[in-house]
Each structure stands twice: as structure tokens, then as C-alpha cells.
């Protein structure tokens, strides 16, 4: 549920990769644990229906503890209104106007500007922001970002994505199961003749179907995730009535502000800046795999909302 993953990180963002590494590492370890555990179950000889059930339970457990896992892996600390009065004030203003339950508020001590929301339900959720974000944004921009995160909570996006990934994980194990048994089937095939070779062919189909399912669900999850980002932007615009502020915040966070030329047109013209072939920005393949829509697209949509409001 990260607010923004910059595609072109600027130098001051690149310097602070600690948070990203830490979160990637902890989720990597978790995934590894899953695979080791389920492979062990497979080795012991459990049939694949019970393995599917166990995998589902594990994913639901991950969802149930998601806030704790995320807070632990990101190093976020829950803060009181005495420690961060401005942050608490802004959130209280949004929730009072929109009649929402108040989430726990956490701060991560890093210069990388970012924010995320996590938690299983509307009542036990956490909104975390980095100190970099607090320094970078003015109060109205911060309001836009926090409203975006509160919309993720309202929309139960953590649950939606956990359920979506359940499907892909099941397909993944189906695939592994197929490989495993498929290999066995082939081995027997030499001894028992035609009947088992047919069986091996059937298992190959299972593997292919599972593989396809996994690829498709992988892409679908990403599509859902991108769509939920747009939905959260829209929700933020409705809550605050100021989509331009969120757009401006996105500009700042993504480092796109630095792309705004400072050089005068008359100087730039001398450098022949206009004959550069336009870069193929936002290519389709990158779009297909990313969980966040390109910042430009989000800003464009937000500004359309702004224009239609006036």
C-alpha cells in the first residue's frame, strides 16, 4: 500500500534505500519460509488439497498479522499527538469531516518521503508516514496523502490484495505439485508402458494450466493494485476537495518536481534541446508489471478532477 514508488528516484531518494531493502528482505524471508514449509509438506506426502488449505491458512494468518509484520519490518513507531501534533491534527480533521474511525499513527525515521496504510480492519489499522514526507510536504499536501491512505483503509485494500494473492499462491503450488508428480510419472513411464505415459501427459497439462493461472493472476493482482491506487486518489480528492494538492504532493514525492526545467527557454534553445527523440516513457511492459500506475497518469487524473471541480 505504498503511496508511491518512484520510477525515477532522484539522488536524495536513492541515498536512503534502507527501508526498501529491509521490507524486501523480510517479505523475501517470509516467502522463502512458505516455500520451504510447503515443500516439506509435499515431501512428507500430503495430498495437494490439504496443502492448499494449509497455504490458505498461512496467507490468512499473514493478513491477520500484516500490520505487525509491516510495522516490524519498516521500523515504524506508533506516535502520540504530543510527539507529532501537526500529523495528528491533519488526520483528526479528515476523519472528523468524513466520519471515519481514527487509525493508529506511526512514523518512520527516514528521509525517503513515503506513506503507507496497513491493518486488517477499519478499526485496527495503522497509517505510517516517514519523517522525510513530513519535512517535504506542506499541511494541505500532507492532508491529501493521508486521505489517500485512509481511503485504502476504507476500501479494505489489504484484504482485497491478500485474497487476490491467495489465488496466485494456490496456482503456484499446483504448479509445483504438478512438476513433482509429473517427474515421477515420467520415471514410472519406462516400466509400465502406455497408460502412465498418458498420465504424464495429463500432468503436463496441469502444469501448463497452473503456470498460465499463476502468470495471469500475477498480472491481475498488479492490475487490481493499480486500480486501487486510482481509487484511493479519487477517495482522497473527495475527502479533501483538493485533488491539486495531492497531485502536487505526488510531484514532490516522486521527484518529478526536479524534472521541471529551471533553465530559461532561450538558453535551452541554444542547446538544441528540442530535437531529442521523445523518450519511450511508460512502456507497456513496465506498466503491466508495476503495482503502482505511473505518477504522471495519477497526476493527470487528479488534475482532471480538479478541473471538473472548478
Amino acid at each position: 500500500m505504498h503511496l508511491s514508488a518512484s520510477r525515477r528516484p532522484s539522488s536524495w531518494q536513492r541515498r536512503d534505500t534502507g527501508l526498501t531493502v529491509r521490507m524486501l528482505l523480510s517479505f523475501g524471508i517470509l516467502t522463502l519460509l512458505y516455500i520451504v514449509f510447503l515443500s516439506a509438506l509435499l515431501y512428507v506426502g500430503l495430498d495437494f488439497i490439504s496443502i492448499t488449505i494449509i497455504a490458505s491458512v498461512m496467507i490468512l494468518l499473514q493478513w491477520y498479522f500484516s500490520d505487525k509484520i509491516v510495522l516490524w519490518s519498516s521500523g515504524a513507531k506508533i506516535v502520540t499527538s504530543d510527539q507529532y501534533p501537526r500529523l495528528h491534527n491533519v488526520i483528526e480533521r479528515i476523519i472528523a469531516r468524513n466520519n471515519l474511525p481514527k487509525p493508529k499513527i506511526a512514523v518512520i525515521n527516514t528521509r525517503m518521503p513515503n506513506a503507507f496504510a496497513t491493518g486488517k480492519g477499519k478499526r485496527s489499522s495503522v497509517v505510517a508516514v516517514t519523517t522525510g514526507l513530513l519535512d517535504l510536504l506542506d499541511t494541505e499536501e500532507l492532508e491529501g496523502v493521508l486521505a489517500h491512505e485512509l481511503t485504502h483503509i476504507q476500501n479494505r485494500d489489504v484484504l482485497v490484495l491478500t485474497l487476490a494473492s491467495l489465488f496466485s499462491t494456490v496456482a503456484w503450488y499446483l504448479m509445483q505439485f504438478g512438476f513433482y508428480s509429473g517427474g515421477m510419472g515420467y520415471g514410472y513411464g519406462y516400466g509400465y508402458g502406455g497408460r502412465d505415459r498418458n498420465n504424464a501427459g495429463g500432468l503436463a497439462i496441469v502444469v501448463i494450466v497452473a503456470m498460465l493461472t499463476w502468470v495471469i493472476s500475477f498480472l491481475v493482482i498488479r492490475a487490481i493494485s493499480r486500480y486501487r491506487e486510482f481509487a484511493a486518489d479519487r477517495g482522497s480528492a473527495q475527502m479533501t476537495g483538493k485533488p491539486a494538492k495531492l497531485a502536487n504532493a505526488l510531484m514532490k514525492i516522486s521527484g518529478n518536481m526536479h524534472r521541471m526545467p529551471t533553465k530559461d527557454l532561450r538558453q535551452a534553445e541554444g542547446l538544441n534541446a528540442f530535437f531529442i527523440i521523445p523518450a519511450a516513457s511508460g512502456s507497456t511492459i513496465i506498466n503491466l508489471f508495476s503495482t503502482h500506475p505511473p505518477v504522471e497518469k495519477r497526476i493527470e487524473k487528479l488534475m482532471e478532477m480538479e478541473a471538473s471541480m472548478s
Binding site: P261, K263, D264, A307
Partner: peptide
């Protein structure tokens, strides 16, 4: 930009918005 981009040929790449 949001108001005019559908009506006139608009430079959508903000990297080309050179100041004067």
C-alpha cells in the same frame, strides 16, 4: 494543463515547460 489539454495541442511532458 488539465483545463486545456483536450482543446489545444498541449505539451504533456512537463520536462519541456521551460520558463521565460
Amino acid at each position: 494543463m488539465a483545463t486545456l489539454q483536450k482543446e489545444i495541442p498541449f505539451e504533456k511532458d512537463m520536462g519541456m515547460w521551460y520558463p521565460l
